[in-house]
Design a protein around this nucleic acid. Structure first.
Lengths: 153, 153
DNA sequence: CCGAATCCCAACTAAAGAAGTCGACAAACT
DNA sequence: AGTTTGTCGACTTCTTTAGTTGGGATTCGG
């Protein structure tokens, strides 16, 4: 249940691209790395994966750089995470809908499926534009509101 | 966002213990391993962690074995997962409530907190008794009902 | 009190994943 | 042509995962 550095970097970089979407100009790797304090070489590896997934577009040469391939309001955090890690939730590398257990644990897969559904509830509804603009959707706000949401559990 | 073999084994073993709760007798490691097809030595390591976390009780010698330390209806899946892995969600090992980013990603921690909250929504409401008896709470059922919850995403 | 059954614990290992780094190469612009 | 920038594969280092092994400590039945 951990979010890796790679996944975190991917989202942060994508959000920065969302923020400079209106300029229309590509952002250079070096600049992007500086904005979010991410090791540049590592970041460029990640950006290449995002390009292969069709999330960003790139240009080489002077005046080159990275930019979103689609409007920021149409790219969700789930899209970015799936591009750099695989499926959102997996048990020992297997997707929860393909599991089958015997004995008393027979109904356990349903729990894993529900878990995945609740991840999707959040991740598929927050767009890069939402984060960049600081206007998070109610699906998120409602879940951060309860005082104990911020408890260090 | 993956559930490790260890976490999966821990929950399955705990559910089996829940199922034989009424017998009042401890279940042997070898038997438990057989029931869920888990490597016995590895399982016993895990069970020791569960004991140290106060989730199960053990007895040695002939007639020894493992049993739940509290009623199965009072132990949630989240309890078991926290016992064997750390906190439910962490970004690069840091709990989401302690993060802070600059630039356009400033609001990103709220997304991670919402994510964790939605994990808790499921995991803190399903008990071992629920799974063993096959009666999952509505918090889970509602999330497995939509047809696309089982889609291979 | 002896011996068998059972859990306890620390140490070890092999394989994979995480987090980067590096250097040569390919495209684009001036 | 030459500089700027992204592309790609290979490599490294460290940690985690998924176990295994072997001896030690408890408990019980006889």
């Amino acid at each position: 249940m951990r979010i890796t550095a790679k996944a975190d970097y991917a989202v942060r970089a994508a959000v920065e691209l969302a923020a400079s979407e209106k300029s229309g100009k590509p952002v250079k790797g070096e600049h992007l790395a500086g904005l979010q304090q991410i090791p540049q070489n590592f970041l460029e590896n990640i950006l290449t994966e995002l390009r292969r997934a069709g999330i960003i577009r790139t240009r080489r040469g002077a005046d080159g750089g990275y930019q979103l391939a689609r409007p920021a309001a149409e790219i969700t955090v789930a899209d970015v995470l799936r591009a750099v890690e695989g499926p959102l939730a997996a048990v020992q590398g297997v997707r929860p809908d393909q599991l089958s257990y015997g004995g008393a644990a027979e109904r356990l897969p349903e729990v894993w499926v529900a878990l995945r559904a609740s991840l999707r509830d959040v991740l598929e509804h927050v767009t890069l534009a939402d984060i960049a603009r600081g206007r998070l959707p109610t699906a998120v706000k409602d879940r951060t509101r309860p005082k104990d949401a911020w408890r260090p559990h």
